[in-house]
Design a protein around this nucleic acid. Structure first.
Lengths: 258, 258
DNA sequence: TTGTAGCCATTGTCCAGTCAATGCGGCCAA
DNA sequence: TTGGCCGCATTGACTGGACAATGGCTACAA
């Protein structure tokens, strides 16, 4: 380990550790050497070692647990399948097997629900075709698995559609909010999903108890009725280290064309 | 700005800057104060200012351009629509409008193609149901827009299906590799998409010229024939700051159930 | 006008140190 | 045995400094 290979020292140290993690000589959950040990081993100052570690933390490869040391991160994703709301059972044997493989079997789910009437955020207002000043009902849910927060799901509905309905009550709706909306005469037949990948905001970091180096998927689904009226926008924040998002697709039947 | 609000100083400084960016008083492209200016303004050492800036860089909010200073990052995502390969024209007017809004109009696309015969990575081998030792053909593509790398797309095919076919030639296939596969008797009718969100590997960072604080989506699509035989795995790496991924969904026709 | 050498503001890298915070483990008392 | 206190190893926060690297700008030369 020297300066001739002209990467900065902290890069070289990070690379060395990353290689050990990739190769498996440092397994998930394993403890890294302490900062002091690495300082002596590489002959640099502690701050330089810390910079190398900070790099890996930001890459999501390791976590620090003061004062125990640094550890290789463990991962165990669970499936998020947006299509499930329109189709409980997968079409294909492939998807069936996939969902089974990643199921959260044996883990204990829980959710907290909160309902409010608010002015919609700009992106929601736009997708619901609302004039400025029109209000929305929002059902905010935080979902937990084994006591750990797993994702945030906020569903927005135009207030004039759902006022006084079951949707306004902060309880679990067994048959689903979509079904309630359908009973009110607004059955969704199509949805448009958008997925953005970015680093979390500080608020998201806090609400989801995210470690540094954990990106999130920002999933925004807009549900439309047969007539094309948007009646629901659902925003889900999915921490990258706890989820796989999956879709199944099928080739169109030729007669499908306009 | 003081220590009483017990967040560390570098957090407070980062928060102050983040607020200015959120509120828009620092617009995309704007130059931040220099480190020396902030050191004086907040009465801390330069290293502490740098730690605050490093935070924002890792959040993807700012970039540093030595020696010009730090700047608020610009974003301009384009649409990635996996369903396009089975369905050129969107179903719904909503998706149509969405694709139009984010189109890459006026920008100049280019791609580099490379073909090789390799042992498949473990995740590919598993999805193609290959025994260990079986080889695959891989078409590696890097797509550019206006000279900037935009995404990486590697498509894997079981070698025994595509040997000597057009797929092995490192040129653009106008009608698509899927069509060639169909002509060979392996028409894909279903696909299973998985999306993972994570920080890029150093290799991806290099190939896509990613700045720090840019997460990626790892999109892995497995195409199946009518009989359920997997014939293609496509892996796409999508930098989070340059893409929106979108899907459209439709409620099933009731008779669809098994 | 064009090229170029060098100045310089700015960020990048690194050091050697101080003091604070944290949580585990062991010691001791009830 | 149990419970609480405390020491200690370890990471976190921060300082004030040094020198390197970079790229734009200016002034001067061709």
């Amino acid at each position: 380990m020297n300066r001739l290979g002209r990467d900065p020292m902290y890069q070289q140290i990070a690379d060395a550790l990353r290689a050990q993690i990739d190769v498996g000589s440092l397994e998930p959950g394993a403890k890294l050497p302490t900062e002091a040990e690495m300082r002596d081993k590489y002959g640099v100052s502690r701050e330089t070692v810390r910079k190398a570690l900070a790099l890996l933390v930001n890459e999501g490869l390791i976590v620090s647990a003061r004062p125990q040391g640094h550890f290789v991160r463990r991962r165990q994703p669970m499936v998020f399948r947006p299509q499930a709301e329109f189709r409980k059972r997968p079409w294909s044997p492939e998807m069936d097997a996939f969902v089974t493989e990643y199921s959260a079997e044996g883990r204990e789910p829980r959710q907290e629900i909160e309902v409010a009437i608010v002015e919609p955020p700009a992106d929601v207002a736009k997708r619901l075709h609302l004039e400025s000043g029109e209000l929305v009902a929002v059902r905010k849910r935080v979902r937990y698995l084994d006591g750990e927060p797993f994702n945030i799901n906020d569903s927005y509905f135009p207030l004039n559609l759902v006022r006084d309905s079951e949707i306004m009550r902060p309880e679990d709706i067994g048959r689903g909010a979509n079904e309630v909306l359908a009973e009110l005469g607004y059955r969704q037949v199509r949805a448009l999903d958008e997925l953005y990948v970015r680093m979390p905001t500080p608020d998201e970091t806090h609400r989801l108890d995210l470690g540094p180096g954990t990106p999130v998927a920002y999933h925004i689904a807009t549900g439309h009725t047969e007539e094309g009226k948007p009646v629901r926008v659902a925003i889900t924040i999915l921490p990258g280290d706890r989820h796989v998002i999956s879709y199944e697709r099928r080739r169109e039947i030729p007669s499908e064309e306009a």
